[in-house]
């Protein structure tokens, strides 16, 4: 399954990408994350939350969507 992955803030910096399309045969969002981790080593210590089809979800959730977004917390003001 082709998954469109969007990156924000420090995550986009670590991957040097704003988005990419990856191929995933797993059934969970965690499977997508594993592929992303393997591809982008700099992500390993980064904190983020995951959205599937524009909704924040637990990574244990079943992969049902075509779009995943990785969003880090911002503290600046």
């Amino acid at each position: 399954m082709h998954i469109h992955v969007k990156y924000f803030g420090q995550i986009a910096e670590a991957t040097k990408l704003e988005s990419e399309t990856i191929e995933c045969h797993g059934t969970q969002i965690a499977n997508v994350l594993n592929i992303i981790y393997a591809k982008h080593e700099l992500l390993n210590n980064k904190k983020f939350t995951v959205a599937q089809n524009q909704e924040f979800v637990d990574p244990e959730t079943l992969l049902t969507g075509a779009e995943i977004a990785l969003l880090p917390p911002f503290s600046g003001g």
Binding site: Q10, N45, K46, K47, T49, P73, F74, S75
Partner: peptide
């Protein structure tokens, strides 16, 4: 509900 706990000190840079 979005970020349950703060990130570790020093891991997220500031302005």
């Amino acid at each position: 509900c979005l970020f349950p706990n703060p990130p570790e000190a020093g891991t997220v840079p500031n302005c």
